[in-house]
Design a protein around this nucleic acid. Structure first.
Lengths: 155, 155
DNA sequence: CTCTGTGCAAACACTTTGCAGCTAA
DNA sequence: TTAGCTGCAAAGTGTTTGCACAGAG
């Protein structure tokens, strides 16, 4: 762990941490050791960790850190744009009985999910790296943004 | 509502309900009015409803239905493959600090999320219908399936 | 008649919120 | 010094589970 400090990956890490500090300052956020540790843990993980996973990692360095802090910090990271939520919106499950080809647009404001069907998206080819090793059950193009209704309500 | 029974949409609905009954029989599931009502409500909704939304709809016809039944039924629909979950895996939030272009493969068994980067997916074009009306913040190709590790564990 | 499905209530998991003391700037 | 941050505990939200009765096959 400590031995990794000098390698090439580390300098990249240093840069990212530096950028993060700058981004925090830009947003009027204080540079706390917990914040740094959470961000570092997220950067170092290749597994798209949950708050719980980050919590466990950070705890090794900061035994006194609380899960709440990790949760709050992660939400903050999302807000200032240095990280984002890739799964588990936190909202309730949403179902679809339309088995035909179609894609989804989701409004990040009102959570509305709008179907659309763009033929070129129906047969996207799975790259070899995935197709050869994994069993593909479903593939789709997923678009996130702000819908017309929410955009109108100013903002 | 009742007036819609005779139109062209209705015959399509009839067919789908019939297919559903067949699918239930195939899977040894009983044909209960609640089950039918939940499936019908899901078919009729264009909004990718949550269990709560379906619950409210079904309640109009079946005031005595419980939310649990709706939840259980929806999970069953997913299992027998007549519907699926489009959002809100139910699992906890997952974060990503990698802002560069990349895509995700998610294993439906172990929930592992694997990154991959397939250049052609970096610049997928948003169809006009979406681009003209909505503000696009993020677009990605999302693949679901079973990962190598889970596939090995037989099944 | 039998066994699955339903409704109710309790249990859960994860997240969010309120507050007092702490700490970076 | 003083905002903002943290840790703790409590409250919320959505989902799952256990059980007895009801109803489909």
């Amino acid at each position: 762990m400590l031995g990794e400090k000098g390698n090439s990956k580390s300098s990249e890490m240093q840069k990212k941490m530096g950028d993060f500090v700058a981004k925090c300052r830009q947003n009027g956020l204080k540079i706390t050791p917990q914040r740094m540790a959470v961000y570092r843990a997220l950067l170092e993980s290749k597994e798209h960790p949950s708050a719980e996973m980050i919590f466990r990692t950070v705890k090794e360095v900061f035994p006194s850190v609380s899960l709440d802090t990790v949760n709050r910090t992660l939400l903050t990271l999302d807000e200032i744009g240095v990280a984002f939520i890739v799964e588990g919106s936190g909202d309730s499950k949403r179902y679809d009985a339309n088995l035909g080809d179609h894609q989804h647009f989701k409004c990040v404001k009102c959570k509305r999910i709008v179907d659309f069907h763009h033929k070129p998206f129906d047969n996207i080819k799975v790259p070899k790296s995935i197709g050869e090793n994994f069993i593909v059950l479903r593939k789709t193009v997923y678009i996130e943004g702000i819908c017309d209704l929410c955009a109108k309500k100013q903002n």
